[in-house]
Design a protein around this nucleic acid. Sequence first.
DNA 1: TTTT
DNA 2: TTTT
Lengths: 182, 182, 182, 182
Amino acid sequence: MARGVNKVILIGNLGQDPETRYTPNGNAVVNLNLATDESYKDRQTGQLVPKTEWHRIVMFGKIAEVAGQYLRKGSKVYIEGKLQTRKWQGQDGQDRYTTEVVVDINGQMQMLDSRGGGDNASQGAPQGRPQSQPQQPAAQNSQQGNYGAPAGNNQGGGYSQPGGGQGSMPEPVDDFDDDIPF
Amino acid sequence: MARGVNKVILIGNLGQDPETRYTPNGNAVVNLNLATDESYKDRQTGQLVPKTEWHRIVMFGKIAEVAGQYLRKGSKVYIEGKLQTRKWQGQDGQDRYTTEVVVDINGQMQMLDSRGGGDNASQGAPQGRPQSQPQQPAAQNSQQGNYGAPAGNNQGGGYSQPGGGQGSMPEPVDDFDDDIPF
Amino acid sequence: MARGVNKVILIGNLGQDPETRYTPNGNAVVNLNLATDESYKDRQTGQLVPKTEWHRIVMFGKIAEVAGQYLRKGSKVYIEGKLQTRKWQGQDGQDRYTTEVVVDINGQMQMLDSRGGGDNASQGAPQGRPQSQPQQPAAQNSQQGNYGAPAGNNQGGGYSQPGGGQGSMPEPVDDFDDDIPF
Amino acid sequence: MARGVNKVILIGNLGQDPETRYTPNGNAVVNLNLATDESYKDRQTGQLVPKTEWHRIVMFGKIAEVAGQYLRKGSKVYIEGKLQTRKWQGQDGQDRYTTEVVVDINGQMQMLDSRGGGDNASQGAPQGRPQSQPQQPAAQNSQQGNYGAPAGNNQGGGYSQPGGGQGSMPEPVDDFDDDIPF
DNA sequence: TTTT
DNA sequence: TTTT
């Protein structure tokens, strides 16, 4: 039940492969880094200046599974989610804030590549992507006919972070060298 | 599962009270007539010219029930749905098309009045609106924690139209004098 | 100045090449037929049933020019516009209504194909598309740095319709065998 | 020119009066703190748990002026903008990131209160609000008929911060006791 | 860090 | 810090 509207709509490309983690009860949680490009005309020079905005995306439930399986670095994707800012503690004990686009049971994800993913035609896709699968799956955690389906526990936080090692983004509870979560 | 995006977002006021019908299995179906206002500067005269656009809304499921109960003529409301054009036969046997904004399990509705609806404070609300209810309910057919909840059969059309008499909008199958559905 | 919100967001594919017309003062007006796909699980059979929704798009100004030049049948595109229903007269003198998604100075268009359009690599693109142009242009009639730029006269209607012949969609004023505008 | 889509749509209430600043060339820049409410059903207890999300909004141009003049603490408002994360230096020399919703020439703002703002009827509105003005103005920096109109320089950052003292939010360049911008 |  |  919402007493307001909180909606984010993005179309952009992944800066890197998705990172998949799992909650204690086995639900997938996927993090994406998404770039949206814009260019504007500089008022001084009249030049077109490119500008890239990076977004941190967190996906839950079925959408997360699909994203983890089919999206790759470079993939173009449509995402609909909501803004969420979470507070965490830096190593210095001070509060830090990270704003993310959360794609949960009310969100949507849509792959926009011609054939199912960025560089996956040129090189083998990791995680044993099944070749017989549809090439451009779309995902919506909640949809017609999906009544009673299991859904990611996107509330209450507290998902596990197995590893978080090399290549994965630092998370608040991790003991990393720096405390920059974004 | 969507292989595309079809989204409509409206904020406007109801031109009349909602019309509620029921499907054979008891699910509510509500029709709204929503006005969105816009004004533009006439290039000749420089005058600000007001322009009202009317939208035909069809709601299913829990949202429909809430809308039927709390919305009234004049109510300001936020609506998120999808575009759908349906074909029907005019009395002359020719095809007609009506485009509607469908608010189903994936849609959203949000009342925006200060206290629960347009003119409902000045006159008794029909349909036995419970006075102890929250004044400004928001509705989303599908939401967190709602797993396994029943949902409107918003697919396959074919809902019943009990009456359709005085005050209700003409529907394709009705035997009205004119064949204008919108 | 809007006293409401009227927004449509679509991602889909063109059912045919864009139709370009020009206003008396030379501004481009482009019509598109856009399909958005959705499939839902039939509650009886449990089968996934595909469902295609067709949308009639009207574009004005700079966006129209870009769309006319780069979009082709099959092109995947993101569109942001507003709903507009216009009334016209059928041959029988009765009123008809057609709802369109209008993409004007406040709208947006975004090509989503890997390389500039649907089937345009396999066959010569009409209208003398320049080969040296960027492959995937994006268009926004109104944008940063664009102050003072000319814009389509998307108000007041009354654009000319040169031809409207074979292959183009019937328009209200045309003298066609049927009066179905959509 | 956008090579992507970056859109945020919010409906919520202001947590405090808007803060207005001015760029060196006199353009208004307004900061808002907007709350969007959501409640979800706790899966353990079955209780409805309220949850408020706070958003930092930055407005430029004509929208900023309207917002500064008419919005007040408690005002309900519709906002359309884009996500932007900016980097700044904490007092400890470390990088910090703040994500904001930027409402510029492409954004939109819509007041949703019955009569022009939260508590502004009960107390004198600052900044000499004209009493004869419309009660519920809507604002769009870019709109029909607005061709050639001046617009806020929403690019390049670097607006001045006159004061930033008591009551205003800490900004990166300020010399405050803490370095929390959000 | 992506994409054109 | 808002609102219901």
